[in-house]
Simulated assay, not measured.
Amino acid sequence: MAKALVGYLGGPTNDQLQQTATMRRRIADLENEVLRLKVENDGLLAALRERVDQVSASDLAEPVSH
């Protein structure tokens, strides 16, 4: 089965090696982007919690003026 995936004779071609390297770089870039977004999201959630904690019951009872 492995021979069918890599090729019956020889190993991976130069194109396959290059594509693999490109995909690994892209995956690393995407993982870094996910990490950055998680950190940003955590900061936004913390800021939102802080604002919610500052809102009093009387603030909620007042109608919003447009």
Rank of each mutant, 00 (worst) to 15 (best):
M1C: 12
M1P: 10
M1D: 12
M1E: 12
A2D: 15
A2R: 10
A2W: 14
K3G: 08
L5I: 01
L5G: 00
V6A: 04
L9A: 15
G10W: 03
G10Y: 03
G11I: 04
P12Y: 14
P12D: 13
T13P: 00
D15L: 09
Q16E: 01
L17C: 02
L17F: 01
Q18H: 05
Q18T: 09
Q19I: 03
Q19M: 06
Q19G: 04
A21I: 04
A21F: 03
M23K: 11
R25I: 11
R26T: 08
I27H: 09
A28C: 08
A28H: 08
D29H: 07
L30I: 03
L30M: 06
E31L: 06
N32I: 08
E33T: 07
V34C: 04
V34Q: 03
L35N: 12
L35K: 12
R36H: 03
E40H: 01
D42L: 07
G43F: 01
L45N: 08
A46C: 04
A47M: 06
R49P: 00
E50Q: 14
R51F: 07
R51L: 07
V52G: 05
V52M: 11
V52F: 08
V52L: 13
Q54M: 13
Q54H: 15
V55W: 05
A57D: 10
A57Q: 13
S58C: 11
S58K: 14
D59P: 08
D59A: 10
A61C: 09
P63E: 04
V64Q: 11
S65R: 15
S65L: 15
H66K: 15
H66C: 11
H66W: 15
